[in-house]
Amino acid sequence: MPVAPENDAVPAAASRVPVDPDAGGRALPVPVLRSSAATDVALIATFAAFVAVCALLPSIAVPNLAVPITLQTFGVMLAGVVLGPRRGSLAVLLYLAVGLAGLPVFAQGTGGLAVLGKPSLGYLLAFPLAAGLAGLLVGRARSLPTRWLPVAIFGACAAGSLLLTHPIGISVMGARLGMGVQEAIAAGATFLPGDVLKNVLVAVVATAVFRAFPDLLQRRP
């Protein structure tokens, strides 16, 4: 793969060859990429908004599942998978900060510091970490053959939710509600089926996004 110049750096003169209009078989000059700082800010902010929209939209009714699921965790994991660990967790952190500051971006149009007092606080706090872990793992898996990509993405998301979201969410909930370990795990487990479904959705949607924008999988600052 041709080496792209680093962010903010002026490309080395060596990468610029004089060009003959009728170059025939000669190698084409290497593309010079502009600094990605502005695009990174835009991706982070837009995906923070995407998570908000996922949380605000009416829940999707799923056949064979009693409880309709909201898409908040879908948005969180998609941000991590698509943007990579650094930008993905920053997008989720930005979403949380704006919601805590009082803008109605959490599920059911709520917002404000009140979520700090709710038993579900642990799940929110785990989101940036889970998104970051999923993004990191997908980055490791990018050299896999294309047909394995959805499986890898699902595995990365499952790792994020099983290793981070649920343990942290269940611990905080247990502590806030004065529950024992087994009670808390039993209560938290009700979210698992919906979670598996959402991770499948992330795998399908992220694979489509990577097909539309292959460079998101190649360059993951």
Binding site: M1, P2, P18, V19, L28, P29, V30, P31, R142, S143, L144, P145, T146, L149, F210, P214, D215, L217, Q218
Partner: peptide, 18 residues
């Protein structure tokens, strides 16, 4: 002599063409 080239961006992980 301003010339612009771009990567085709096809294929995962494979060689990108200009």
């Amino acid at each position: 002599g301003a010339t612009v080239t771009a990567y085709t961006g096809t294929g995962h992980g494979g060689q990108q063409e200009i």
